[in-house]
């Protein structure tokens, strides 16, 4: 009898939840974001052929100035959010660097590509949770060598919307699972990263 009333109560609760509006309207169909601006992260490089690995901890507040390995370069990202909440988008970046030392030259060309899909949940007009999954592919061609590192990316940004829903502050927990790595010296290195980063988001 007691079990039956529990089941009834659960059914009533489910019906009550179903009667609520499922979600608030998405704040805009286009999202432009500045991501991985600063935060805390732990990255680890592993060699699948038994070589030594390397661990790195990075703490940044308001800026990123030091180098290091991992995927968290500050970037601009664009997503399209369908009315039902599904989103598609990604980030793209290109970098070119030349160091002209007194007795040597050093050049790097780097590309970052991070396609992704997600689902924008907006439980309240000022709060959104946006679980996403995607890939992060990076390649850098240096003087005399090339390095490619790739990861499966899981992230769940929490967006605090401000200013009539146009602009939001984003706190993003993320995990990058390194599944592929290749460079001219260590052919089986992978890089994974776990962290929380801060960024900004605007919906149009």
């Amino acid at each position: 009898m007691q079990r039956l009333s529990l089941v009834r109560s659960a059914c009533v609760a489910c019906l009550a939840l179903a009667a609520q509006p499922a979600r608030a309207e998405p704040p805009g169909n286009w999202s432009v974001a500045i991501e991985r601006l600063f935060g805390i992260s732990r990255a680890w490089l592993r060699s699948n052929d038994g070589g030594p690995g390397e661990d790195q901890t990075s703490v940044s507040v308001f800026t990123q100035h030091q180098g290091g390995f991992g995927y968290s370069a500050p970037r601009v990202a664009v997503d399209y959010v369908l009315d039902l909440g599904l989103s598609f988008g990604g980030a793209f970046g290109f970098g070119k660097y030349r160091a002209d030392y007194a007795y040597d030259d050093y050049r790097i060309n780097a590309v970052l590509l991070a396609p992704r899909a997600g689902y924008l949940l907006t439980p309240t007009p000022t709060l959104a949770i946006w679980p996403r999954v995607g890939l992060t592919l990076t390649t850098s061609v240096r003087t005399g060598s090339e390095e490619d590192v790739s990861a499966l990316t899981f992230e769940a940004p929490v967006v605090f919307l401000l200013r009539k829903h146009v602009v939001g502050l984003t706190v993003t927990p993320y995990f990058e699972y390194g599944f592929s790595g290749l460079d001219d010296y260590s052919p089986y290195n992978t890089v994974s990263e776990l962290g929380v980063s801060i960024g900004g988001n605007a919906f149009f």
């Binding site: 800026t63 180098g67 370069a73 980030a91 002209d100 007194a102 790097i108």
Partner: peptide
């Protein structure tokens, strides 16, 4: 010593000088 850097949509290359996203 001279360092030239160009980035588009992401700051991926090493930092020299004063500039970093802030």
């Amino acid at each position: 010593e001279n360092f030239d850097s160009f980035n588009l949509f992401a700051a991926q290359t090493p930092h020299e000088g004063y500039s970093s996203p802030r």
